[in-house]
Design a protein around this nucleic acid. Structure first.
Length: 931
RNA sequence: AGGCGCGUAGCUCAGUUGGUUAGAGCGCACGACUGAUAAUCGUGAGGUCGGCAGUUCAAAUCUGCCCGUGCCUACCA
């Protein structure tokens, strides 16, 4: 007879196959329908706030896997903090101003044959605004598709009028207190974009430079050996020669004075010329410029040379100034000639050495388009990047250059136009690191900040300690203007709070465009004459925008506050947002805008290589969402150690789907087992069998661990713990053991009810613990039971655990039991391999153990734990041929076939089954009750 | 080139203050079950702990050097 319909098999609507790519959007829609974000805010209205302040991504393209990692991590943190009962209000934001967007718009113009400079600035800015708005929408959709929960209806942007106004007000603060100053410095300049660039806007690529060896005839030697000699320098930037004002050597370097005796054909050098260069580089230089024979006249040190004055190589052609020779620590003999030419307008080191240290004036030689200025002889109008060979050849003809070559080297380029950059002396606006003690404040604030991982603290601190003043100005159009007036006569910026207030108020109403569109008088008011003041038209470094988010988001919004609990970004943001936010806040508030900083690594491919189109190893979040689902991606995030770099690729995604299935099937089994369960069925703790108490103890242990790990943002450990629970404790152990009871016991037996009571607890806890991670699947499972979309799993919290569940002695006891069980499993496998049994229910075991181990099994049904039909625990001596496992000496198993026949209902083998009755006594009872 | 990281089985990760034979899960192989079934259970094979050299009775763990790799900085004539 068939007893299958009398067995309580698991039943659930929750499918084994997830179909996440289809299902997730449906779940998202339900969340939207009930406005889960608003509900959560209302529910946590009075709870302790947890503020993870979103670092704004740049609104100019599709999301890549790094964005996904970043936002998923933030979401897991917010959801888990919410589960701890806090009000984790997450307000996403976007960085909208800046060069990359501006560049895109310019590109569009160029395609249409238009010139950006012909377009009114406000019109141009509007196009930038529209561009940012478009990508902001695209990205918002994609972030939401990842399951990221936040105030997507009211995100912040740096281009909102309120934001622009607050940014201008923030600038006003550092203008008023003197932190902001105007200075002239060589800055990285792009002749193509005609702007100074921030450090972050520069990238390095190989570039071929024309190199020259130039000769500087000594006019006032500081050492007799130098009389009538010429100092030889090597440079990769011939265009800086008009700007040359000095030379540098190293005190400790040995130099040689030589006479040229013989030259190769085609060499620019001249026989009988006397030149000076570093001893160590003599051979290299001779080879490079074609000196076939020379006589060494003298040897001297750099210290002997310092103080010498030379004349410019083109002294006879209009470059008549003196060229003094200084010492500089950074001069080496690795390359060149051991002498360095110093153009104070074209290098930071040059500027510091010649201008700051020795007071040499800084000439203006290069215009903003990269052309040599009109007032300069010979080279006026030539281009600093294109005409170097011409410059070199002209100089050679005039005897100022004795060698010309080429060098391929790494060189700074604009990150957008990819064009090479030059140093150019310009007037710029700076934030002083020292004048108001900004550097000290920032460093001291970092000492009070929690870093995850801790290494970030050193990294950021040493950057702040070493960085130069912050250059805030950009000669661009798309950004918040530097809303400053400069007195034409004195060159001093106007510091008047009333003026600043008028500007800020106007921007708040009309946006920052009004700065460009309005006449100065509107802001200057009646007390100043507009003719006396120049309106600055530079815009602010976008890092100042995003560095001010704490002001216009955390402070300006009623539902947030500053400082934030956490800033979380990729480790590149040590130099970026963590850095600029800290400086901005310290300059204006005297404190950091965050209490904690978490950094994650970068995403690499499966082999640890950078992702690139050329390698074809790019993994996009869109592809994973379409093929596997966002929950797979979320699982990947938490399964990785995100402090270091993380890897992703086909195999890793496959592993993630494997892990996912384990979680999903565990939930599915629980749901099936709980078919028809209600709390009326629940059994009190004290009435439960000990295995059930052991499970509850596991829940108590995990509850503590998960709370601690959540506070430490240690999701990888949570993932491991949950996986171990589902895999080892439940599927392979508890579920296996309790299958018989669940399927075959009387529905109302206390033991079966106890099992289901525990299963219900497992389900409740597990869905809550998984909810921050598998936000879709946890909801799907939860809804399978509650069937009430308003009762979302994400509105729940981690329920407190009854104190009596924690029971260490039960934990220890079952550790011992499982150790014995491990030997039993091996013994059964042994019998299986010998062909004695198939299913373990065919076995009857005698387990020989020590007396203390025997005690562990007191009051327990060993056969059910081993899933055999019979089992005896004894401390009698084991027979010789008993099964033992290497490394475990106190357990020996004597194997025997189970006695009796197979019960047709529960499949256990027992003598109770006879020719007349095909099922065991337990099953007889149950069947009788059911029918 | 400099600063800060990282490098433990095919994959993801554990390895406490240096202390037995380096662990787990997945995957893989083999097997079982056919009442979690495109599931589930069991057993097993996989590692010169990036390399070399030190310190030590003892090193995955401490030190130095090197290699690979990532982020950042510099680019220097």
């Amino acid at each position: 007879m068939n007893y299958k319909d009398t067995v309580f098999l698991p039943r659930t609507e929750f499918p084994m196959r997830a179909g996440l790519p289809q299902r997730e959007p449906e779940i998202l829609q339900k969340w939207k329908d009930i406005d889960i974000y608003a509900r959560l805010r209302a529910a946590r209205k009075d709870a302790e706030p947890f503020i993870l302040h979103d670092g704004p991504p740049y609104a100019n393209g599709q999301l890549h896997i790094g964005h996904a990692l970043n936002k998923i991590l933030k979401d897991v943190i917010n959801r888990s903090q919410s589960m701890l009962g806090k009000n984790a209000n997450y307000v996403p934001g976007w960085d909208c101003h800046g060069l990359p967007i501006e560049w895109k718009i310019e590109e569009r113009y160029r395609k249409n044959g238009k010139d950006k400079d012909q377009v009114p600035v406000t019109e141009f800015r509007q196009e930038c605004r529209d561009f940012a708005a478009y990508w902001l929408d695209v990205q918002s959709e994609e972030f939401q598709r990842l399951g990221v929960l936040g105030d997507w209806l009211h995100p912040y942007t740096t281009m909102a009028y309120d934001a622009e106004a607050t940014i201008a007000a923030e600038l006003g603060k550092i203008l008023m207190d003197g932190t902001l100053y105007r200075g002239a410095k060589p800055v990285m300049w792009s002749p193509v974009e005609k702007t100074a660039l921030a450090e972050a806007e520069i990238e390095y690529e190989d570039h071929t430079s024309t190199t020259i060896y130039a000769r500087f005839p000594v006019s006032q030697p500081n050492h007799p050996a130098l009389a009538d000699a010429s100092i030889i320098i090597w440079t990769t930037t011939p265009w800086t020669m008009p700007g040359n004002r000095a030379l540098a050597c190293g005190n400790d370097i040995d130099y040689a004075v030589i006479r040229i005796n013989e030259i190769d054909q085609g060499s620019h050098a001249s026989v009988n010329d006397v030149i000076v260069l570093a001893e160590a580089l003599l051979e290299d230089v001779c080879a490079a410029i074609g000196i076939a024979g020379h006589t060494k006249l003298h040897q001297l040190t750099g210290a002997d040379c310092v103080g010498t004055i030379a004349v410019h190589p083109l002294a006879d052609h209009g470059y008549e100034h003196d060229v003094p020779l200084f010492h500089a620590d950074y001069v080496t003999t690795e390359q060149g000639t051991g002498f360095v030419h110093i153009a104070p307008g074209h290098g930071v080191e040059d500027y510091e050495l010649a201008h700051l240290t020795h007071g040499v004036p800084v000439p203006d030689t290069v215009a903003e388009d990269g052309r040599i200025m009109e007032h300069l002889p010979l080279f006026a109008g030539m281009h600093v990047l294109r005409d170097n060979l011409k410059i070199a050849e002209m100089m050679a003809e005039m005897g100022g250059v004795i060698g010309i070559g080429k060098l391929v080297h790494s060189y700074p380029h604009s990150w957008r136009s990819k064009a090479p950059l030059v140093y150019r002396n310009t007037s710029q606006w700076f934030v002083s690191m020292e004048s108001q003690g900004l550097r000290d404040t920032a460093v001291s604030e970092l000492g009070k900040t929690a870093f995850y991982p801790p290494a970030g603290q050193n990294r950021l601190t040493s950057m702040i300690a070493q960085r130069p003043d912050w250059c805030l100005s950009r000669q661009r159009a798309w950004g918040v203007p530097i809303t400053v007036f400069v007195n034409k006569e004195t060159g001093e910026p106007l510091r008047d709070q009333a003026v600043i207030d008028r500007v800020v108020a106007a921007i708040r109403e009309e946006g920052a465009d009004c700065w460009f569109a309005s006449d100065s008088s509107r802001f200057l008011g009646p007390n100043y004459d507009t003719d006396d003041y120049e309106k600055v038209t530079d815009i602010l470094d976008v890092w100042f925008d995003s560095g001010s988010t704490h002001a216009f988001v955390l402070e300006d919004r009623d539902d947030l506050s500053s400082p934030a609990n956490l800033y979380l970004e990729g480790s590149d943001q040590h130099r970026g947002w963590f850095h600029s936010s800290l400086l901005q806040s310290c300059a204006t508030r005297g404190r950091a805008p965050y209490r904690g900083v978490l950094t994650h690594g970068f995403v690499l491919d499966e082999k640890g290589r950078k992702m690139s189109k050329s390698l074809g190893n790019v993994v996009t979040p869109q592809a994973i969402m379409d093929q596997n689902g966002a929950d797979i991606l979320r699982l990947w995030v938490v399964s990785s150690d995100y402090y270091s770099d993380l890897r992703i690729g086909p195999e890793i995604i496959k592993r993630m789907t494997d892990n996912y299935r384990r979680f999903r099937n565990t939930l599915r089994y629980l749901l099936g087992a709980l078919n028809g369960y209600s709390d009326l069925e629940a059994v009190d703790y004290d009435a439960m069998p000990e295995l059930e108490k052991w499970i509850l103890n596991r829940l108590a242990e995990l509850d503590v661990k998960i709370r601690v790990m959540t506070d430490k943002y240690d999701f990888h450990s949570i993932f491991t713990e949950l996986h171990t629970l589902c895999n080892s404790d439940l599927s392979a152990f508890y579920f296996e053991i309790r299958k018989d009871r669940l399927y075959c016991d009387a529905a109302d037996s206390v033991e079966r009810r106890a099992c289901r009571t525990v299963m219900k607890q497992l389900f409740d806890r597990l869905t809550a613990w998984l909810a921050p991670i598998l936000c879709f699947t946890a909801e799907e499972a939860w809804q399978t039971r509650v069937d009430d979309s308003e009762n979302s799993v994400h509105l729940r919290s981690y329920d407190p655990i009854p104190s009596k569940w924690a029971n260490n002695s039960i934990a220890k006891r079952w550790d011992g039991i499982r150790r014995v069980r491990q030997v039993v499993m091996s013994a059964l496998e042994n019998a299986r391999n010998e062909g004695k049994i198939g299913t373990s229910l065919q076995a009857a075991l005698k387990v020989h153990v020590s007396a203390d181990v025997e005690e562990l099994f007191d009051g327990l049904d060993a056969a059910s734990l081993f899933i055999t039909s019979a089992a005896v625990i004894t401390n009698l001596p084991a027979p010789e041929d008993a099964f033992k496992l290497d490394g475990i000496n106190d357990v020996a198993i004597a194997f025997a076939m189970a006695d009796g026949e197979k019960c047709a209902r529960c499949w256990r083998i027992t003598p109770e089954v006879t020719a007349e009755v095909d099922i065991c006594k337990r099953c007889q009872k149950v069947v009788a009750a059911v029918r």
